[in-house]
Write a protein that binds this DNA or RNA. Structure first.
Lengths: 144, 144
DNA sequence: AATCATTGAAACAATCTTGGTTACATTCAG
DNA sequence: CTGAATGTAACCAAGATTGTTTCAATGATT
């Protein structure tokens, strides 16, 4: 099972989108996610590096959406949080004296890449805005 | 990163397909994969449960392919080794007093399922026989 | 200026998964 | 009977992930 950071990141962005332009504190967000504020800040720091959110320190500070919810796709989010490949190769290099051991990784690499790309393309069909509309159908979203 | 068992299982099945109808020992296979024989037996036990291979105890024993290499797809293999979903939900249930916390998991579940299905469909386009042909182009495969 | 709420960041602990190893009973061919 | 193999359980090691604590820095408010 892939870690929960992807799901938590979607949750956080939905909150920020729903409350926009109100900045939210990591403490408030952690209350909705039901975890520790530091866990939220760690994930939000990655999203800030990717240009999706901004933060303000000090009293009255918090986190605010910068990207449009319509433009944030689950596929893009997945790539931000989980760079590299989803499939793991051998832990130790296979035996190169065996023809199969020698060729297996090269043979698999492209198949794995294509499969992961198919998953990400499918994820790209969903946006944060779409999820918020599903969860809060009556809400009128304000956008950055 | 997903664990390496998927890659190792493909490796093992390619060996069994390439050497068919010769039974291979877990010790021999472990030598090609470069790991411990018990690790190989653990994976092969799952594949046996799924009806892909059979084992014989005792001297001269080993593992033999039962399914046709053409019929074993990477997608099917993936499902055998990794039942359930690839995406992890929250570790602790989100706060149901929050509208987003209440609806997020239900909103995500179907998107996650569709994305995983897209990946498995893409993996289904590749078979063990195809990989063996890539690695050992000159080999004439015998089939169960 | 003082206070208080917040982020930023490091350090550490707890838990889980995975992979590797050992050990030993069981099976079976020769 | 012997030796080589599987079957299985138990355990350890390493790594990843998550949660927690702590404290410095920031900045709004009074």
């Amino acid at each position: 099972m892939i870690n929960s950071r992807f799901t938590v990141a979607i949750h956080v962005l939905c909150l920020l989108a729903a409350e926009y332009p109100e900045p939210l504190t990591s403490r408030f967000i952690a209350g909705s996610v039901n975890t520790n504020p530091v866990v939220i800040r760690r994930i939000l720091a990655e999203l800030r590096k990717a240009g999706l959110v901004e933060s303000r320190s000090g009293s009255g500070g918090g986190w605010e959406l910068v990207a449009k919810p319509e433009s944030i796709t689950l596929g893009g989010l997945f790539q931000i949080l989980r760079p590299g490949t989803v499939f793991g190769m051998h832990n130790k290099q296979p035996n190169i004296l065996c023809p199969v051991g020698r060729g297996i990784q090269g043979a698999l690499r492209s198949h794995f890449q294509v499969a992961q790309a198919a998953m990400e393309t499918e994820l790209d069909r969903t946006t944060i805005a779409g999820i918020v509309r599903t969860i809060l159908p009556q809400t009128q979203l304000c956008e950055p």
